[in-house]
Amino acid sequence: MDKHLIFMDIDGTLVNNQQEISKKNKTVINMLQKKGHLFYVATGRKYSSAIQIANKLSEQTQVVASNGSVYSINQTLHKEQLSENALKKIYETTAPKQLPVFFFGEHTVFYTQQLPEYLQKNDQSRIGNSEEDFCFIDSLDTLFSVKNRIINGIIIADNQETELKEIRHILEKSELLSVSSSHPNNIELIPLGINKATAIQAIQKELAIPKERIISFGDGQNDLEMLQASGISVAMGNAVNELKQQATFVTDTNLEDGIANFLINYFNQKE
């Protein structure tokens, strides 16, 4: 069978609420990898967090991280970064409203407000892996001192939808970066012109696999471009409505082995 290129978002797609990959998902993915199909996790997480999940599947699973800002092709890592002007705009826009911003390096999280307790406990997988991963940013000068280590970022603010909408509008209007959201409580901060789709297109070109043999799975708004760049786009049963409307197929939820169930049906039909 012709080789397929398969991209899977992590949170809300590949893993459950305990950050676990189901036995069925892993079994089906590993079986298809042995047949020569290529699998990537494609996520807004920083690289070190994404590679941990990829390695839980297999050493052959590769990574698109930081919403397309970092990706691997045949073990070579490619990287884009937020510009200095983008960092300045983000900081000067969010600081007066005291909105928490997290900037991601490959292995480090730089944060601008007091680190919320719930992030330290429940969202370590999404934001960071240990206390050593965190570095406090107390000024624009401090931010600039680490600018070469920053790839992308995220604003997270619960119960502040009005402020987030205002900030998103300002950042979009600046045309200094790309923005998206993986949840109503956040704004994803991405290098200008970069998203999961741009990474997919670069990987596709290098590996010479046609679009009709690219499958992608997602559940959030930041997966929209990825699905549009794929010949076979699959929204999870728990996906936002916008994604379901754009996808070619809708599968079961991430808690019901949605990835495995779709792949079993798809490849059985091919065979």
Rank of each mutant, 00 (worst) to 15 (best):
residue 45 R to T: 09
residue 66 S to R: 02
residue 213 R to I: 06
residue 62 Q to S: 11
residue 167 I to H: 13
residue 176 L to C: 01
residue 200 I to R: 00
residue 169 H to G: 13
residue 69 S to D: 04
residue 240 V to R: 12
residue 230 S to C: 06
residue 206 E to F: 11
residue 144 F to D: 01
residue 1 M to F: 07
residue 55 N to A: 14
residue 79 K to A: 05
residue 73 I to D: 01
residue 157 A to V: 12
residue 125 S to A: 14
residue 54 A to W: 01
residue 95 A to N: 12
residue 103 F to P: 00
residue 226 M to V: 04
residue 270 K to F: 10
residue 120 Q to M: 08
residue 5 L to Q: 02
residue 106 E to K: 07
residue 137 I to Q: 02
residue 76 T to R: 07
residue 202 A to C: 09
residue 152 N to A: 10
residue 260 A to G: 04
residue 66 S to Q: 14
residue 15 V to R: 03
residue 14 L to E: 03
residue 19 Q to M: 14
residue 127 I to L: 08
residue 157 A to D: 14
residue 40 Y to L: 03
residue 181 S to F: 10
residue 184 P to N: 09
residue 131 E to P: 11
residue 28 V to Y: 04
residue 222 N to I: 03
residue 1 M to K: 15
residue 175 E to F: 12
residue 153 G to H: 03
residue 186 N to G: 05
residue 48 S to N: 13
residue 102 F to L: 11
residue 236 M to N: 05
residue 190 I to K: 00
residue 169 H to I: 11
residue 238 N to Y: 05
residue 236 M to Q: 06
residue 161 E to S: 10
residue 16 N to M: 11
residue 160 Q to L: 07
residue 250 V to S: 10
residue 265 N to M: 13
residue 121 K to H: 11
residue 122 N to K: 13
residue 46 K to A: 10
residue 181 S to T: 07
residue 2 D to Q: 12
residue 9 D to F: 05
residue 30 N to K: 06
residue 19 Q to T: 13
residue 105 G to T: 01
residue 216 S to R: 00
residue 72 S to N: 08
residue 111 Y to A: 06
residue 112 T to A: 03
residue 256 E to P: 03
residue 85 N to Y: 08
residue 253 T to M: 11
residue 133 D to C: 15
residue 240 V to K: 15
residue 92 E to F: 04
residue 26 K to S: 11
residue 266 Y to D: 09
residue 22 S to A: 05
residue 232 I to V: 11
residue 202 A to K: 09
residue 271 E to P: 15
residue 153 G to N: 02
